[in-house]
């Protein structure tokens, strides 16, 4: 479903960001990407939603190869991906429901289908009562729920989350994490970058650990009796 094969990424100014990245996220899987800041987590996610193209190797998402994908094909692919960020990326001048509806409006969804979908997904993230609130009237955790609702509204096959709890307190973090697990339980795969090791240790989900642009550990590749992984303390 998301397949990285010998992927390398270099930037003209900052040099090598990733090298020899090979992994495969399967349908319905929950995988963490961990590692210190600058280890390449966000770059992997950008490659996964094809904001960046690999310098070497290939990234295939739902059968689409990053190497030959046109901008139009990438746009169509993103309708099947849900993407969530640390900074929520909501439109401040629109209500929660308008933010969610926006994702449907820009993808040519028939008008009559928008409202029921928006309400369903806001209820799913526990924000049915705050549909008309604006982002500034919501807490950080609630804003992230709106962002997740927007990511979910097109029924994605995978949710890509880049440090989704990075700006949240403990309680909100637990709430968002539980929400992501609930979403995963309905069959949507989740690929989540985080440096919150407590969160990672609390579960038995797959862990892919990066350091200096390379995969240093992948729990899916490790033998069954191996220890829970080398997970290094974050250098941040």
């Amino acid at each position: 479903m998301i397949r990285f094969q010998g992927v390398g990424k270099e930037y003209p100014r900052t040099g090598i960001a990733l090298s020899h990245i090979t992994f495969h996220v399967r349908k319905g899987e929950f995988a963490f990407l961990t590692g210190p800041s600058g280890s390449g987590k966000s770059t992997i996610l950008k490659l996964a939603y094809m904001e960046e193209k690999p310098s070497h190797g290939d990234v295939r998402v739902s059968g689409l190869s990053a190497r030959g994908a046109s901008r139009r094909e990438i746009a169509k692919l993103r309708r099947k991906l849900g993407i969530v960020f640390q900074d929520f990326r909501l439109l401040e001048d629109r209500s929660a429901e308008a933010n969610v509806a926006f994702a449907l409006e820009v993808t040519d969804t028939p008008k009559a289908a928008i409202q029921p979908k928006v309400h369903r997904v806001l209820a799913q993230v526990g924000l049915a009562s705050k549909a008309t609130s604006f982002p500034r009237e919501l807490s950080g955790g609630e804003q992230q729920r709106v962002a997740i609702a927007r990511a979910l509204v097109n029924d994605p096959f995978v949710l890509i989350a880049d440090e989704p709890t990075g700006n949240l307190d403990d309680r909100a973090t637990r709430g968002i994490f539980q929400l992501l697990r609930d979403i995963n339980a309905t069959g949507t795969a989740v690929l989540m970058a985080t440096h919150d090791l407590d969160l990672v240790r609390r579960t038995d989900h797959r862990v892919i650990e990066l350091n200096h642009g390379r995969i240093v550990y992948d729990s899916a590749e490790a033998p069954a009796d191996a220890p829970a992984g080398p997970i290094q303390g974050d250098t941040e």
Partner: peptide, 16 residues
């Protein structure tokens, strides 16, 4: 530009 970035993120085509 923020709006445009979000549009592209959720799969709006360049034409749109």
């Amino acid at each position: 530009s923020r709006e445009i970035a979000i549009m592209r993120l959720v799969g709006a085509t360049d034409g749109f």
